[in-house]
Design a protein around this nucleic acid. Structure first.
Lengths: 110, 110
DNA sequence: ACATTTAATCGTATAATTACGATATTAGAA
DNA sequence: TTCTAATATCGTAATTATACGATTAAATGT
């Protein structure tokens, strides 16, 4: 491959892609809606709200957590999950930058 | 199995997840930035801007197209790609709904 | 007609995702 | 201590994604 193509993707592109990937499954969007729909963190009972096995939900929670979208901390026999407000704001900002860039144009299109 | 389960999530969740999945790779975000950064559709030369093989770029374009984020039409020996403004607006709207839901709260958090 | 150019598609290898059941772990209850 | 409940992790199978080179197809140029 041509040497001139060696440039990689930039940090923002990689970070945005990482977070959007975390949101790229209906179950994970549903989880975020459940978390957002409460006035507090959720300790337990997330699995009950989803049409998936407990281990699968745990996996989805893990991927949301490793992307930084949610936080989870052990509280006795349960784990409490909440949104990571800071990183949600980061996601919002990165996404809006892209969207602004994509929509602010008077394009002479084909 | 995955197909059956997907039907248990609602339409908005599925559609948003589908579109976000299309944006869940740095190369595809880069492609959208390239498309947005021009004042017109791009006919050719997208591959030249990315550190990926032509066939790989074509694959990424295909996935953006099948999610409805971009349009592509054949123009002579080239294919012209542009943003699908309508569906980008849909994505923006669905995403903002979710984000609004996720950020408009005074949560008593753990 | 033939060659060139552009982009899609094919074939394929590897990795990641998604799902489930089974098992392990841990904290609190009995 | 032993049992129970909640949740993470393991093992595994099936599917999808990512990447590349090779090939094909279609439009244009010579």
């Amino acid at each position: 491959m041509a040497i001139t193509k060696a440039k990689l993707f930039n940090e923002k592109q990689v970070r945005l892609a990482e977070m959007l990937k975390a949101l790229s499954h209906p179950a994970r969007i549903a989880i975020l809606e459940i978390l957002a729909g409460r006035n507090t963190c959720i300790c337990g009972d997330i699995t009950d709200e989803l049409p998936l096995a407990q281990s699968t939900v745990s996996q989805h929670l893990k991927s949301l957590k490793s992307a930084g979208i949610i936080k989870g901390e052990i509280d006795g026999v349960r784990t409490c999950y909440c949104l990571n407000e800071e990183n949600v704001a980061e996601l919002k900002s990165l996404f809006e930058d892209l969207m602004g860039y994509m929509t602010n144009q008077d394009k002479t299109c084909c």
